[in-house]
Simulated scan of single mutants.
Amino acid sequence: MTEHISIVTDVGSFDAIAAGPTDGRPVLLLHGFPEAAAQWEYQLGALGANGFRVVAPDQRGYSPGVRPERAAEYAISELVADVLRIADELGWARFDLVGHDWGGAVAWWTAGEHPERLRTLTSVSTPHPAALGAALRSDEDQQLRSTYMRQWQEVGTTEQRMLADDAKAIRRMFEYRVPQNRIDDYVRRLSEPGALTAALNWYRAGRPDGKLGPVAVPTLYVWSTEDVALGSTAAFDTENWVTGPYSFQMLEDLTHWIPEEAPEPLAALLLEHLRAH
């Protein structure tokens, strides 16, 4: 059974959903853009039913209680700090961390900078940041896939374009692979005053300070062949940026929206990974 909880930290209150016994092994799930914690509904239930304590927060900007206005306040250092704030408030000294899309990027950085806090790492869709950075420098295919990141830097007009005509542009991002009622919920959330700007500030915050090196935490990376944003070059290079136990799972004929497009296979992969470590 899914619970709705609030996680009160020094930067504000994060809305979250949770499942599983309170004394179960802790797992934190991080969503991506333009979604919310609800993207993990199936995996939350599956892991909770298997005895894990699973929490999925609406992250910075997506939770109304943590929605700063300046783009700089969405720097990766703040997003990683939020992960630790949430874990500390939940009383989790060590935990398993799972992220998709932007949540995957935050998960990689957390694993690299605070390995002592994580039992395992799972990134869905998102390659290691160094692998993606190398692809952006040398791979024309990845450069073309990532042109939207530059386009979304334009404040105001980007929001207007995305929300026009009942948020047609946002709805089309999902490639008809996410349930309609879930898309309606995401659009409703992002239509709230300031919500879409806050979500886009993740892209506008600027590059991280420093570079992320290899990750030593036991890692599962799940990538899909039809992902329009993240190509194979960075996906295949990611193994070179993990020094701990590593599993790469490539899902054929699936798009970027793996948690909702293939909820059961992903839950099975997560359970296998968690039980192995």
Rank of each mutant, 00 (worst) to 15 (best):
T2F: 08
S6E: 14
G12C: 02
D15E: 14
G20H: 04
F52T: 10
V54F: 00
D58F: 12
G61Y: 00
Y62N: 01
Y62E: 08
S63T: 02
E69Q: 06
A71Y: 00
I86A: 13
D88I: 12
L90A: 00
F95H: 01
L97D: 08
V98P: 01
H100S: 00
D101E: 10
W102A: 02
W102G: 02
A105T: 14
V106M: 08
E113Y: 03
R117N: 05
S123Q: 07
V124S: 02
T126Y: 07
H128D: 04
A130D: 05
A131E: 07
A134L: 05
S138W: 10
T147N: 11
M149I: 08
R150I: 15
Q151E: 01
Q151D: 09
E159L: 01
Q160C: 05
M162W: 05
D165M: 06
D165V: 11
D166N: 09
R172G: 06
R172W: 03
E175Q: 10
Y176A: 15
Y176C: 08
R177G: 01
P179K: 00
R182G: 01
V187L: 12
N201H: 01
R207M: 09
G213I: 03
L220E: 03
W223Y: 12
T225N: 10
D227Y: 08
S232F: 04
F236T: 13
D237I: 06
E239V: 06
N240T: 08
V242P: 13
T243H: 05
G244A: 09
M250F: 04
L254A: 14
A262K: 02
A262L: 07
L271E: 08
H273I: 02
R275Y: 05
